[in-house]
Structures are given as C-alpha cells and as structure tokens.
Design a protein around this nucleic acid. Sequence first.
DNA 1: GTAAATTTTTAGTCTTGTCTAAAAAAATAG
DNA 2: CTATTTTTTTAGACAAGACTAAAAATTTAC
Lengths: 224, 224
Amino acid sequence: MASLSQSEENYLKEIFHLTQLQKEKVSTNSLASRLNTKASSITDMLQKLAEKQLVQYIKYKGCSLTENGEKIAVQIIRKHRLWETFLVNKLNFGWDEVHEVAEELEHIDSVKLVDSLDQFLNYPKFDPHGDPIPDKNGKIPYRKTKMKLVDAGIHKKLEIVRVNEDEMGLLKYLERQNLQLGTKLEIIEKFSFDDSMLVRTELDTTINLSKKVTENISVKIVEN
Amino acid sequence: MASLSQSEENYLKEIFHLTQLQKEKVSTNSLASRLNTKASSITDMLQKLAEKQLVQYIKYKGCSLTENGEKIAVQIIRKHRLWETFLVNKLNFGWDEVHEVAEELEHIDSVKLVDSLDQFLNYPKFDPHGDPIPDKNGKIPYRKTKMKLVDAGIHKKLEIVRVNEDEMGLLKYLERQNLQLGTKLEIIEKFSFDDSMLVRTELDTTINLSKKVTENISVKIVEN
DNA sequence: GTAAATTTTTAGTCTTGTCTAAAAAAATAG
DNA sequence: CTATTTTTTTAGACAAGACTAAAAATTTAC
Ligand SMILES: [Mn+2]
Ligand SMILES: [Mn+2]
Ligand SMILES: [Mn+2]
Ligand SMILES: [Mn+2]
C-alpha cells in the first residue's frame, strides 16, 4: 500500500465527485477542467492510476474508480470534511474560509490523527456546508430527504441543510443574507420569468433569491 | 513572496537547527545526514536557496540563513511545535507519536490557521518536549536557566524542563520510566566509570540513568 | 610541504507531474 | 454516410528534486 502523492489523491477525489454528479464514466475533459490541468496531463495520470489498480480506464471511453480507488477517495473526503468541521467549530473560521486550507490538510497521512480528530469533534455527521462526513469505515451518512430549494414546493416549512461550497461566492453571499445551515424558511412565491423566488425566513424577513442561489441550496421539509 | 516547496522549507529548518547547535556555518555533509539525502542534492538546493536570497552560501565553505531565510525557518518551527502541542494536549497523542505527523502539518500554509491554533491552545510557550514555541513575530521564548542533566550538580532539587525529541527511542524510554516534563528529581550519585547517575524522583523511586539519557534531558534547579 | 584522505561540487540520469503541438479517435452535422 | 468539429491520446519537452560517478577543492597526516 505505497502511499499516494497529493496529485494522485486529488485525481481520485475528483473522479469520485464527478461520478456522483453524473452516473456515467468520467471524461478526460471534465476532469481537466475540475483539476485545472490540460487533458493530456489527465490521460497520463489515468494511465498511471490504472496501472496501480485505482481506476478503470478505457482509452477514449473515460474512467471510473475501482473498489480500492473509491475507498481511498472516500477517506480523503472524510479528512477534508473533518478538517473543515474542525476549522469552523474549534478555530472559528467562517464557512467560506475553510475549503482552501482543507485542500491541504486532507493530504496529511495519519489514521490516528483522523480518528482522534473525529472523536475530538464528537463524530460529526455533516461538515459546515452540510455535506456528509464518511466514517472510519467509509460509510457515508447521506441525507435521505433533501431537495434543492429550486425544486421545493411553495408554502412548506423548509430548513437549509446543505449549501454547495463549490459555487464561487455563494457562501459569502448567504452569510451576508443571514442564511445558514439550520435556517428555516418558506417559499412565498415563485417567479417564472427569471426563476427567482421570494422566501420568508424565521425572523419574518423576506428575501428574493435567484435561480443560481436556489439551485445551490438544499433543504428538507420540516412540516407542511 | 512565492511560497516554498516542502523540500525547501525542510532545508531552511534544518539549517536553522544546525546553526543553533554549533555556531559555525553549516556544512554540506551535516545537512545531508540530517535530511537523509546525498551531499550532491544539498549542493543543488543550496544554490537554489542562495538564488532566492534565503541562505548565504559560499562554495566549499558551507551556508547560513539570511535574515529572511531565518524568519521563514522560525515560522515553520512555530507551526511544528504548535501542532505537536495540539496533538498532545487536544488529541491525546503520546509525546513520542507527534513528531512525524508534525513534520507534515508544519508545511500547511495559512497564517490564519496558525494564529487561530495558537489562540486555541492558549498561546503555549513550550511544546510537549519542552522546546520553545516562537510567537507570531518570530520571538523565541528561550529558557534562561536550563542545563543538561549530565552537567547538573549532585543533591540539588531539579525539574525536567526539556527532552531531546530527536534522540531515537528516548521518549518511549522516559515514558516507561515515568519521567516526564515537570518531573522533579535529585541526583544521588554520579558514577564516573560509565558516566551514569543515580537519581531519585518525587515518588522516592531511584533510577540509574545512562550518559546517553542524561545528555538528552535538560533540567532547571528548583531549589538547593 | 607534499601526499593521502575527506568533503564538496559538477556532470549526467531518473522520476513525477506538468505543458504544447501534433496525431488519432469519436461525435456531430448535413 | 461522409465531412467537419470536438475530444482524447501520443510525442516530446521542461522543472523540481533526487541519485551515482567523477572531478575538484579542502583538510589532515606525516
Ligand atoms: Mn471543501
Ligand atoms: Mn465542505
Ligand atoms: Mn518535532
Ligand atoms: Mn517538539
């Protein structure tokens, strides 16, 4: 089990994420754009990872993770999300400040460290953005009932359970609007001409949210 | 201020440590043995670091840190020792388990992270081995009164304030003997034929310590 | 003060991960 | 179904950081 380079780990992680989004095999170009590299670099690396039995790769057909590759990817995601939780819960980072540092911390290689951190944080199930934190065995506590705000029905009592941390600028925007995980809200009206919606929060403030926003927030129904 | 590679940071740190030990310029070979590389690799890197104005390097004459190089080295040491403190104080690592992980954590690049960690730990002055932790501004809280146990006088009340974490196996040995930072002891007798000594600890247990041990423990005098 | 031993540097290679440019395969359009 | 466009792969290059072997400088020994 020779340990992997940061680069290799990032590739595995990204293949995992892309596989979640669309069920098909992951294309060279999609990886290239997520990893900010050129397609040729992706091809090189995929060949290496295939060699190491971490991905299945068929020329021109894209790739997917092997069982082993997925196991490793999940552990990196576990570390990433635990560190983000640590930074927010213990070191008082804002939720928009943690991702970059977690990108570095996730590569620290020590099982004892990760497990101790997990315990120290009291075995959190979700990170500061509401993403599930895989446990020691790689089990991911997906939320069963969760939908994008854009798809939620009108006049139901909703609670924000997840925000898309990848969406550049969203976190800061939500902070400014006083919207956070756990915030309860209700859709008052949906405007079809620009797909924005008017929502009312607990404090009786009403805000208009654009499609861009409501597509990147997930909620659960609290009551109806 | 382009950020440095892990390798470059390790070189700077090691040059700093070696400069502390012996006042002269640091030799290529001494660096090679500390960094587990070959002398030729050292030469290559010194040329690069000299280029970047981080070390002063004169062919065949050894090197030393520039002001800027030292500043960076000290900040890495700060990070190393803060992380070690975190691991012991918050995650319940043993003092013999932290160094390796800290070697990785010390390269995480985020001033906010380091300073928050420092605050979270309550601005510790010393790490789990009794080594001083540089502050945000690079000031190092050296202990004024401290001597190697091997050099301490007989029948004085002493307290362990520092152990040499580099000495392979020492930490585990001391743990086994129930000797830790803060342990009070008194030298009962010194044996010149093998330079060992008999010490009595607070709990009235007496232990014979070899020269190898007493050279790598530092104490302060509590009373005489 | 010269010869031998040691230390340090140089020259040349290798691996990793990236890039650009060109070639090849696959997808799309008419 | 063929031609064009797009995607992917290959070929060749480069920088970082390490290594080995050989050359050069320095130190030590007599
Ligand atoms: Mn993140
Ligand atoms: Mn997250
Ligand atoms: Mn250490
Ligand atoms: Mn230490």
